[in-house]
Computed example of a mutant assay.
Amino acid sequence: MSDPRTVTIDTIDHGLVVVDEPAWCIGHGWQINRGIGRNDITHNSVRAKSRMTTDTHGLEPLLTTNVTWAPFAELVPLVTVELDVIGDYSAEDVLTVARGLRVAASRLERVAAEAIRLREDVL
């Protein structure tokens, strides 16, 4: 029986690679049997999202962020940040956008703090 803290991925350049699986990783189903190289093996955390509702556009995504780490290509975990706001808004909706960005900033700060904590585990 395999160790529950590892995952085995068949890579195109190194064959079967056994990787330690951090507790925060959501899994590798999206990478298994995909023809990836060893340096492409990536751990990802759950995504944190922020949304807003404006009169101009209705419910819109604002931010998606998560911890990510390719252990064979990067020394420490990084943070993925996707900002999704683009468009023309009424002045009142811009106030909603600003409030949403403050919420998004607090989520970014939490994810960054987690990545810093995880980095200490790696080093």
Rank of each mutant, 00 (worst) to 15 (best):
G58Y: 12
K49Y: 03
G37H: 14
T96V: 04
P22K: 07
S90R: 10
H14I: 09
V122S: 11
I32G: 04
L63Y: 00
W24Q: 09
I116D: 13
T68L: 08
D40Y: 11
E21G: 02
R110L: 04
L63D: 00
V97M: 04
A48T: 09
D84P: 00
G15L: 13
I36W: 13
L62H: 01
A112T: 04
L63C: 00
I86C: 06
V76R: 07
E120T: 07
D10V: 10
W30P: 07
I86D: 10
H28K: 11
S2P: 11
V67T: 02
V76P: 00
D84Y: 03
H57G: 00
S45D: 14
I86P: 01
M52D: 01
I41F: 04
R47S: 07
G35A: 13
A105V: 04
D88G: 01
H43Q: 10
E120A: 06
V67E: 03
A105F: 02
I9W: 08
T80K: 13
G87M: 05
R5G: 03
D40F: 10
L83D: 07
P61C: 06
R119F: 02
A70S: 09
T11A: 08
N44T: 15
D121K: 14
P71R: 15
D13C: 08
D55L: 06
N33R: 14
K49W: 11
P61K: 08
A23C: 12
S106D: 12
V85S: 01
Q31R: 11
A112G: 03
V94H: 08
S2Q: 15
V111T: 04
N33Q: 15
D3E: 13
T11P: 05
V85I: 08
K49G: 02
F72D: 12
R119Y: 06
Y89N: 07
D55T: 07
D88L: 05
E60T: 02
T54S: 03
T56M: 07
D3G: 02
G29N: 14
W24F: 06
K49V: 08
I32P: 01
I116L: 13
T42N: 07
D88C: 05
V17R: 08
A112N: 05
V111H: 05
A112E: 10
S106Y: 00
W30Q: 13
L101P: 00
G15A: 08
L95F: 06
I86M: 09
E74M: 04
L108D: 01
V111R: 02
G35H: 15
C25E: 11
V79Y: 06
H57K: 10
L78D: 13
D84K: 04
V97L: 04
L95G: 01
N66V: 03
V18R: 15
G58L: 12
A113T: 05
R34V: 12
N39S: 12
N39V: 12
F72A: 06
G35F: 14
